[in-house]
Structures are given as C-alpha cells and as structure tokens.
C-alpha cells in the first residue's frame, strides 16, 4: 500500500456557477401580498409607509410624490420601497422588537386619489463614508420587468449634496432628478419620472 498522497486543499474558484433567476414584473395585483394593510386587506403588512412615529429619534419628515410614465401620467399601481439610515447615519435594518426604526418602508400608489406615495419617516443622517443624507429607493410596477434603483437626496442639504460621491457620478444636468424639493416645513416632494426629458437617474448597483 502506498501512503496517501499529500493533496493540496484546492481553493474553489469563487466563480458563479448558477445562473441568476430572471426578474419579472411585480404585476398589477401585488397589493394584498406586499402591502395588505395599506390597501385594506385582512392580513397584516410586514412593512408599511409609516416608518417612524413620535418615539423615533430624529427630525420627523414626510416624503410624498408620484411615479410618472413617459406620457406624464401618474402610475396608480407602482410599489415604492425606501431603505435609509437612522438620524445618526447608521443602518439598522434588523426588524427586532428592540429596534424601533428599521429604516425600511413600503408604499403602493393605489390608495391615494392622486396616485401619490407618502412615507412618514425621519431625516437620515450623514453616512460614515461621507455620503449626503439620502434614501435608497426601489421602484416596482406593472410594465417594469426589472425593478429600478434610485436615490433620493434633500434640497436643503446643498453643501452635503455638493460633496456627495454618488451625485458626483451623475451628469450634472441630471442631478436635480434625485433631489426632493422642500414644499413645507418637514414635507418633501419627490416625483419619479420613468421616462422623458426629466427621466430620473436610475442606478446599476
């Protein structure tokens, strides 16, 4: 019998070997599955548009807006997801009972007469990587086979926005599509244009 040959532990090449499952549209009928409470179905939502309340640390704000198609018509069956840092600039996505603010919210545009989405939240802080306060936004709807990623910045953070490394990657003439307007004390307006002259910047992340 020969002694066992010494084998080197082969390090597996860290190459993808399974193909990504393709994306499909969320379709027109997601509401009772993904946002049942908002739409009045008898099943509790896991996530809703009220991300913060009186007990949440930070500056309370409301963000509202419409999703507009290429003809400028508001989309009444879009689903918007927000993911943001807390007021100190930290992400705290873990949804446990001792974390009141998860930074994650969801709102469909089908319950408002003007097809607006509306989030109650707090203004996010500056991220440790020196990114201006912003919210990560995911856009899903019928007619969108692959969700779109964008970011929402705040008009009243001019200095921070000017130094933001992500905004710096965006052609200057399109940056305004990522900046929510301050419409009244604590209320911001962020419209998402899927197409057209003011098409919102979407990111490949």
């Amino acid at each position: 019998m020969t002694s066992k040959a010494v084998t080197h532990q082969a390090t597996l090449p860290d190459q993808p070997s399974f193909g990504q499952t393709p994306s499909q549209t969320v379709g027109p009928f997601f509401a009772y599955g993904l946002t049942p409470t908002q739409y009045g179905y008898d099943w509790p939502s896991l996530v809703g548009p009220d991300m913060a309340d009186e007990t949440t640390a930070g500056y309370r704000i409301r963000i509202e807006g419409q999703v507009l198609d290429g003809a400028g018509v508001p989309v009444a069956d879009a689903l918007i997801e927000f993911l943001q840092a807390d007021s100190t600039g930290r992400y705290c996505q873990t949804d446990t009972s001792n974390t009141r603010f998860t930074g994650f919210g969801r709102c469909g545009t089908g319950t408002d007469p003007e097809s607006c989405f509306r989030f109650e939240t707090i203004k996010p802080g500056v991220l440790d990587r020196a990114q201006a306060p912003h919210i990560n936004v995911t856009v899903l709807m019928r007619g969108l086979l692959l969700h779109a990623f964008t970011r929402m910045y705040f008009a009243d953070e001019e200095a921070a926005n000017a130094a933001d490394p992500v905004l710096a990657e965006v052609p200057s003439e399109r940056r305004h599509t990522l900046v929510a307007k301050l419409v009244s004390q604590g209320v911001y307006r962020f419209d998402i244009h899927m197409q057209g002259e003011n098409e919102t910047v979407f990111f490949d992340v």
Binding site: D69, G70, V75, L145, A148, E169, V201, F202, F203, V205
Partner: peptide
C-alpha cells in the same frame, strides 16, 4: 413597458 421602462443608461455605482 413602452411608457414605463427607463430609456437612459443606468449610472454605475
């Protein structure tokens, strides 16, 4: 998709 899909190139991050 004709009026809803983004038409401009995505910005890489």
């Amino acid at each position: 998709t004709a009026l809803r899909g983004p038409t401009r190139p995505l910005v890489a991050l």
